[in-house]
Design a binder for these strands. Structure first.
Lengths: 238, 238
DNA sequence: ACAAAAGTGTTTTCCTTACACCCATGA
DNA sequence: TCATGGGTGTAAGGAAAACACTTTTGT
């Protein structure tokens, strides 16, 4: 029998980011895609990813591509899931058992207005509305689905919405975000209002803003200090 | 500049399992540990893990060690988190930047009575109560903490308790499990009772069991069919 | 004046919480 | 008969759901 170590798979580890944003004007959830240049799936859209370098942590790699693709002020980032079956990357020829490609995916949220895409003239890069995502390279469709699931879950019990919304927003904006992610029937608007305001971490800036017809709305701001005080108590945004 | 591929880290990927169980007799949460034999940390306790082999999926590797260490009838298994910083394994010498060791951790639940440890006479293997876990190899203490956090969270909104309890159990057993994991003050017993029974997936087997003094209790059974019907509706076990 | 959106209030219902209390057994 | 744990019931308070209604703007 060959020495045990020869049975072990050799891995390259990639980091793939599911980066969400929301276009408040069009009321659409967006995901950042890049056009692949390299060998497999060249010319196809994919999640922005990279292979992990020597001495680099997974999270550092995630931040690196992020910084390569967009300029942003604020960001939310957390690990999503690790996809590692054999055959997820054609570079590992199915019979030769060479190098395995494993993908550690990260989930990120940025503000649309603050996120400036870095177009280098070579690589395609674009925000895609979730309903119009094209075919993706590798198993990136699965990763995207998993990320979207996470977004829906997190909206219900954590304040991630405020990492996607502009710094100041109306309660209508907030409600629209929730409806466009969670569907129309998640809650009545007025109940949603009172519930969120009662939580006590939204401060009215006093500034009013008018969008077309209708009564002008107050701009609110997420108060992270107030939130920090309640953060271990269970909380429902539904 | 050297070709780009030489900058990439070469990985070995390990799978480490946080396997929980509960000893109903002593009312203690247990975690499965094994004594390391190999090179780094030899003679120290660690989470049961293995390196992923050629052509083997991550989950398959997780099941493989599981099957190597215990015989079980029922098991719950899900991916936990991926720990991948450099310097988490001394085998990667800090300056030479050789092979990186990455750990994809899995979270598992088994029934104590049904789980038969496979002692091969060579390797130490034992259930440790959570309060008496010794020092662990690598960053396994961090992984264990993360797994315990997951256990606490899942108890609140998913029926994982029934993967740890015996097939039939009293409501007192169920309550004790919750208190030993979540602490004494998570809920009043009688309210816990009524809440759980109202959910509608616990069936009374009619069998009574007497444990020392006190009125005999009914044995209940988790009814996965009834649960499946309600599974997408939000549910609170608190 | 009217539509449209913001914002307030009310009612009904249901769930949570905190108990008090009865029941069946072992010692 | 008493301690012990199993099991039922209830009253107070609060949150959730549904909906009516008022306010302030643009057109």
């Amino acid at each position: 029998m060959t020495p045990k170590s020869t049975n072990l798979a050799n891995f390259k580890v990639g980091v793939d980011n599911v980066i969400f944003s929301v276009d408040m004007a069009q009321n659409r959830v967006l995901v950042l895609l890049v056009m692949r240049q390299g060998d497999p799936f060249s010319g196809q859209w994919s999640l922005p990813g990279t292979l992990v370098r020597q001495g680099e942590s997974l999270e550092a790699a995630a931040y690196r591509i992020l910084a390569e693709k967009i300029r942003f002020k604020n960001i939310y980032l957390e690990q999503l899931y690790t996809f590692g079956g054999p055959d997820r990357d054609p570079r590992e020829s199915p019979d030769c058992f060479g190098v395995r490609y494993l993908s550690v995916s990260y989930f990120a949220l940025v503000r649309f207005e603050e996120a400036q895409l870095i177009a280098d003239g070579v690589t395609g890069i674009a925000w895609y509305p979730l309903e119009r995502v094209p075919e993706l390279a590798f198993d990136h469709h699965q990763i995207l689905e998993y990320g979207y699931q996470r977004l829906r879950n997190k909206l219900e019990y954590s304040p991630v919405a405020f990492d996607v919304l502009p710094e100041t927003f109306t309660l209508g904006d907030l409600y629209q975000l929730y409806t466009s992610v969670l569907g129309e029937n998640f809650s009545d608007y007025s109940n949603f209002r009172t519930r969120l305001l009662k939580l006590g971490f939204l401060s009215d800036t006093g500034v009013k803003v008018s969008r077309g017809a209708g009564r002008p709305a107050s701009l609110y701001r997420f108060n992270s200090e107030s939130f920090a005080l309640l953060k271990d108590k269970p909380m429902v945004f539904i």
